[in-house]
Structure formats: C-alpha cells, structure tokens
Deep mutational scan, measured.
Amino acid sequence: MSIQHFRVALIPFFAAFCLPVFAHPETLVKVKDAEDQLGARVGYIELDLNSGKILESFRPEERFPMMSTFKVLLCGAVLSRVDAGQEQLGRRIHYSQNDLVEYSPVTEKHLTDGMTVRELCSAAITMSDNTAANLLLTTIGGPKELTAFLHNMGDHVTRLDRWEPELNEAIPNDERDTTMPAAMATTLRKLLTGELLTLASRQQLIDWMEADKVAGPLLRSALPAGWFIADKSGAGERGSRGIIAALGPDGKPSRIVVIYTTGSQATMDERNRQIAEIGASLIKHW
C-alpha cells in the first residue's frame, strides 16, 4: 500500500482519535458579512469528516447552483462504474471539434489522439474542462443518470439537468442544476469515506481534487503551510461562485467545507476574496 493510499485508508482512524471539535460562531459572522459585502445569498456548511456531524452552517438547506462543483460527483459516478466493471479508466475516447464547448483548455489539445477516461476526469476536476465533463456525462448516460446515481446514494436534493455550459445559467428560483450545502457536503463525505467506492477509487477521487489547479484564489489562499486540501470550485452566471473541499491540518483532511453564493453584482475577484476570507476565519478558529 502506498503512503497516499495509507493516508486515505486511515482518515477515519486518525479522526477518531482527534480531540473533540467545537464550532466557532466567528466564522458564521464572516459568512454573514460576506453576504453584506456581496449583496447576495451565501450558503455555508462545515462537517466533521469522521462523524458527519454538522459543526457550523448557514442557509444549509437553500438551493444554490452547483456550477462546476458537480464534476466531482460526476467522476465519482464514473469511478463507481469502474468498480462495477462497467468502465475502464484506460479506455480512450475520441471526439471532434464539434464536441468542444466553451472553456476546454485540455480537451482542445487532444482532438487528434483523444483522451482516456482517467485523463478526462483529471481534466474535468483539476482544470474544470467543460468538454471533458460533457464527454464523461455521455459515458454514464447524461445528466439524468448522474441525478439517479445521487438518488441511489441517498441524495434526493442534488440534481443535474443540463450539460456544460448551460448548467451554469443560475436563474433565480430555478431548481435545475442545483444542490443544497448540506446535501453536497453529505454526498461528498460519502464519496470520500464511505463504502460506495473502493479504496482505490476513493484515493483516485481525492487525488484529482488535491491536484486542483484553478481554485488557488479561494480556500487555498488562506491555508497555512502543512495543511491538506482537496477541492473543486465552480463559477456561473449572475454572480455565482462555489467551492467544495476536504481539508485539515497535519497533512490530512478532517472536515468537509461547502460554500456557495449566487445573485451578486460583485466582480469575480471580490467573490473570490470573500470566500478566501471565510476560509481564513475557519482556519483561525479551527
């Protein structure tokens, strides 16, 4: 067993022997301040990774656009098919120029040779490549099948209805392509620590998230040296922004954090800054 596999296998073990965790309302004060600064709703939840206990939450059962955070769930569904012998990570998928959609920095470079399922998941999570996500959605049967996968996990809230990039439209009061912070946090925890996926697939999923290259201005910008984070960000229309993450000190994750916002007129930089400040408060009061 590799060191990384050992780390993920012992996530519940280490967490069980940690000192009790206590909620700190100071972080919620910052979440509410972010709402004021952005002029928009902000949803927040913080779960203990081992027990699933909610440590703090704000608007945990209000719907927010998922945006690209759905790509972690998508690759979880792909990995479940791999575990069941219905898919192979090494299978190569070929596609054409007509398949390319807006923001496809990886797939646009491989029109000639195609990409493997493993490479597509890596591109979808680490670079948020939209064509990679659409190609992977095709392998599982489309958005409705991802929703069905989530329902089978016990998540009857999260739903995907459309493809990239239309799913980022974020129309107010439109339930399409949305989740709730509580539902997303619980589902992410199941994917990373539950028995739904094999140990190898859980490790692969967290490795992809740990290698995320496009979430630097968010929670990662607030992390002290030595902290662990595996995350996936999302951005959408109407001032929408979000991030889902597993993080913790001492090089291992111990909490799940989900943050979503929508309806702001603020710039992307300002949305990023507010999420980073929430992260800084979380870490300060850990």
Rank of each mutant, 00 (worst) to 15 (best):
P65R: 02
S68I: 05
L192T: 04
N50H: 11
A235N: 13
G114Q: 11
E210H: 14
T187D: 11
L73S: 01
D207V: 01
L196M: 08
S104T: 02
L205A: 04
G226T: 11
E46L: 11
Y103R: 08
I244Y: 09
I278N: 15
E46T: 06
I206L: 10
E237P: 00
F70I: 03
E164I: 11
L188N: 15
Q86R: 10
T112P: 06
E87D: 00
A246M: 11
L89D: 05
P172T: 02
T178Y: 11
F64A: 03
A132S: 08
T69S: 06
R91W: 07
V29D: 11
T116G: 02
A222L: 15
R271E: 14
E166V: 09
T262K: 02
T138C: 04
T193H: 00
G239T: 00
A123H: 10
M180C: 15
R92E: 09
T179L: 14
M115S: 05
R220V: 08
E210T: 13
K144H: 01
L73C: 01
A133F: 01
L191I: 03
T69A: 09
R241D: 14
Q88K: 10
K252N: 08
V82N: 01
N98G: 10
V258F: 07
L196C: 06
E26G: 11
E277V: 06
L247S: 12
E62M: 13
S96V: 04
E62K: 08
V117N: 01
N272D: 14
D36H: 08
P253M: 06
K32H: 07
A200N: 06
R92P: 08
T178M: 10
E102C: 02
I93E: 01
G142R: 02
L120F: 07
E119D: 13
R189W: 12
K252R: 06
L218F: 14
D269H: 10
K190Y: 11
G279L: 15
L223C: 02
L188Q: 15
G114Y: 09
A182N: 06
L282T: 04
G279I: 15
A123K: 14
H151S: 10
G142T: 00
T158P: 12
T147W: 05
T261F: 09
L282S: 12
Q88F: 07
L47W: 00
T27K: 05
H110Y: 06
I206S: 08
D174F: 08
D177S: 08
V157E: 09
L192F: 07
I256M: 12
R41A: 11
G52T: 09
L219W: 15
A77Q: 12
Y44Q: 01
D174W: 07
R91M: 09
K190G: 13
R176Q: 05
N272T: 13
G239P: 10
G43E: 06
R162G: 00
I206Q: 08
D48P: 09
T262D: 12
S51V: 02
M66C: 08
A34I: 09
A211M: 07
E61V: 06
R118P: 05
I256K: 14
T267H: 11
G234W: 09
G236W: 14
V258Q: 07
H156Q: 08
S57H: 05
S264M: 02
T138F: 08
K71P: 06
L167P: 02
D33T: 10
L28N: 05
P25G: 04
R189Y: 14
L192Q: 14
R92M: 14
K252F: 15
A280R: 12
D48R: 04
M209E: 07
G242C: 06
R81K: 13
E102Q: 00
A77Y: 13
E56I: 11
Q97H: 01
N173I: 02
A148H: 07
L196V: 05
S128I: 03
S104F: 05
E277Q: 09
